[in-house]
């Protein structure tokens, strides 16, 4: 019995779960107490999942864990859907997931005749145009895609910010003089909300409404994060690695390449990961108010013209982007640092 999960307790919890939801539905308690209803449901489900987990043979335990992590968000969506269908939440402002999915599908498939854009654009025509060496067509096709606009800003901004960030961070980590000179200034700029300096960026660039200022704010946000993390990464290298490197004859660039760079990489990548998330947050915020393309623009646009399903669909795209970008960086990390424990 110990550690095996009590089957009686399990059936009791399941019964409680059914009773609780049944009673709430029967006595129309959901409208007033939906948060309490969901809270208790959550606790009961945790209990049931825990008990089932104890009874699962070890062989299937990993599979069970994975299914838990997948089914939890699905359950959340189900609860949302039911709350809306049951009239607890307003479908106008909290459209059920099914309608959000439908709106997402519409965003993907429906080409907006007016602005000549859609969420993804028409990437399938892209390959043909590139193959046929028609750069004008490629440009037009790319301009159609809100996703491309956002991704381009994130990637270019990230690259332009991260590269000098890593370089300066390394230099600051190695040289105490440069570090003491720049550190305070850097910390001061680091805390500035980058969206607040957007107007300044607009003044600096010849075309204030072009891609320049948008990419620049992303790059600046990334730059400070990466610089600070890289500096910390270099400074936190085990002194014994540096001693070993020097003792075996490495100095100057070779010490940097063989010891300092790889030694700092884990913290550098931690910084890059935060910076990539920040890049996405910043560009979405900029697109909300200051752009005519991009996923952030799309999201805010559909709120402004009062199409909440599509606004939610836009938010979903942002979340998916966040997950995919982070996963992508993780892959790069594994490729660059094969020595790390997976």
């Amino acid at each position: 019995m110990n550690g095996k999960g009590n089957p009686k307790l399990l059936s009791l919890l399941t019964l409680l779960f059914a009773l609780w939801n049944g009673c709430l539905t029967l006595f129309h308690g959901w409208t007033a107490f939906w948060w309490l209803g969901l809270g208790v449901d959550f606790l009961l489900i945790v209990g049931i999942a825990e008990l089932i987990g104890k009874r699962i043979p070890p062989l299937y335990a990993p599979l069970y864990r994975r299914s838990l992590s997948v089914s939890f968000p699905l359950l959340l969506f189900l609860a949302w859907e039911l709350l809306v269908r049951g009239g607890v939440l307003s479908p106008d402002w909290f459209p059920p997931p099914s309608r959000i999915v439908q709106a997402l599908w519409e965003l993907i498939t429906k080409f907006d005749e007016f602005s000549k854009t859609s969420l993804l654009g028409r990437p399938w025509l892209l390959l043909g145009a590139a193959w046929g060496n028609r750069p004008e067509t490629v440009k037009e096709l790319l301009a159609e895609s809100h996703l491309y606009a956002t991704l381009m800003r994130v990637f270019v901004g990230f690259f332009l910010g991260a590269t000098p960030g890593i370089l300066l961070g390394m230099v600051m980590g190695v040289s105490p003089t440069i570090r003491t000179m720049i550190d305070a200034t850097l910390s001061a700029f680091y805390v500035l909300p980058k969206i607040a300096i957007f107007p300044i960026m607009m003044l600096i660039f010849p075309d204030p409404f072009g891609e320049g200022p948008k990419i620049a704010v992303v790059a600046i946000s990334v730059f400070f994060l990466v610089t600070i993390n890289t500096m910390v990464g270099v400074r936190d290298i085990e002194p014994v690695y540096l001693e070993a490197g020097r003792n075996y004859g490495a100095s100057g660039f070779r010490l940097f390449y063989h010891v300092i760079l790889p030694g700092a990489l884990p913290v550098v990548f931690a910084g890059l990961r935060i910076a990539l998330g920040t890049a996405l947050i910043v560009i979405i915020a900029v697109e909300f108010v200051r752009a005519k393309t991009g996923v952030g623009f799309l999201t805010f646009y559909y709120w402004e013209i009062l199409s909440p399903e599509k606004m939610y669909a836009g938010l979903v795209v942002v979340m998916v982007l966040g997950v995919l970008l982070t996963a992508g960086l993780k892959k790069v990390e594994q490729w660059v640092m094969p020595w790390r424990k997976p």
């Binding site: 085990e238 014994v240 690695y241 001693e243 070993a244 003792n247 063989h258 010891v259 790889p262 030694g263 990489l265 640092m337 020595w339």
Partner: peptide, 11 residues
């Protein structure tokens, strides 16, 4: 020099 065992380069 032979340092303590964690001084081999993990990378």
């Amino acid at each position: 020099m032979v340092f303590q065992e964690y001084a081999v380069f993990p990378w």
